[in-house]
Design a protein around this nucleic acid. Structure first.
Lengths: 142, 142
DNA sequence: TCTTGACTTAGAGCGCGCTCAAACTCGTAG
DNA sequence: CTACGAGTTTGAGCGCGCTCTAAGTCAAGA
């Protein structure tokens, strides 16, 4: 598989794939006779996992640590596991943090909802012909 | 309250407070006779809310939109609410994404746990004097 | 044979969100 | 009076993670 094909399948750009190889996140790819990279499809599994680490906010320097352990192969399982367990904890903490913020957002949005309700109630007390047209906004709101 | 005090109380650095003012995230602060910023403690509430937006991954350019609506005051509530509702959706999506990744991490970590268990089982089949010392690691693991 | 387009490399550039530096002004304590 | 520490401004610099450019190679199709 050439780099363009891998790019399509992985969702990365060819630029990014080369960049990842340069920094050591992807193993050095075998080249064909004209020095083009030729990939085994199994690389997709690794790229997908790297994507998970990235999605969960792991910095590249930590992914590199993991990639190095992986390259060293057997004997590094305990370290790899420990690294992932530490990361999992940080992701859980992040989820908790986001959920806490969601509660604050709910409250804030609820406050605006109340404001709107009070405005509707107020409008309803006005004589028919003085009510604001539906969808009306204040002049400054453009 | 001077900027140093506000920095302490808000958790931002004085540098960052000035930067936020420069870009419009914080309102222009009143200066005392010797042009030092003098803050009303109520600014802390706003800074804390900005912190929530930041924590939840809102880019500064969007916080600026919200800050501008806030500055314009009444008549912008519906827009502010809509902005926060859109943001809340993106945060919820992010939480879902993180939870999905957590499942993958669980599986991966579970795989390493199995490997370790198989190694322990294997060690247990060896004669007493040939067992690895507790905590032993393979030579390459340094 | 010629052209096209996908690839190669090394290295420069970019957008984000700060973070720091330089040169200066004040107000207060010793 | 002097020295210090905390503040002021403008603008440069930084770390991250890409993203793009330039100049070149190569293979396949018209």
């Amino acid at each position: 598989m050439k780099i363009g094909e891998l790019a399509k399948r992985s969702g990365l750009t060819a630029h990014t794939i080369r960049y990842y190889e340069r920094i050591g996140l992807l193993p050095y790819a075998d080249r064909d006779r004209s020095s083009r990279r030729d990939y085994d499809p199994s690389i997709l599994v690794w790229i997908e996992f790297l994507g998970r680490l990235k999605t969960t906010g792991m910095p590249i320097r930590d992914m590199l640590l993991y990639a190095e352990l992986r390259d060293r192969g057997s004997g590094t399982e305990a370290e790899r596991r420990a690294l992932l367990e530490r990361h999992r904890e940080s992701v859980r903490a992040r989820v908790d943090e986001l959920n806490a913020c969601l509660l604050v957002l709910d409250t804030k949005i609820g406050g605006y909802a109340e404001t709107e309700q009070r405005m509707k109630d107020y409008d309803a007390t006005l004589p028919e012909r003085r009510r604001k047209p539906v969808g009306a906004r204040s002049a400054r709101t453009r």
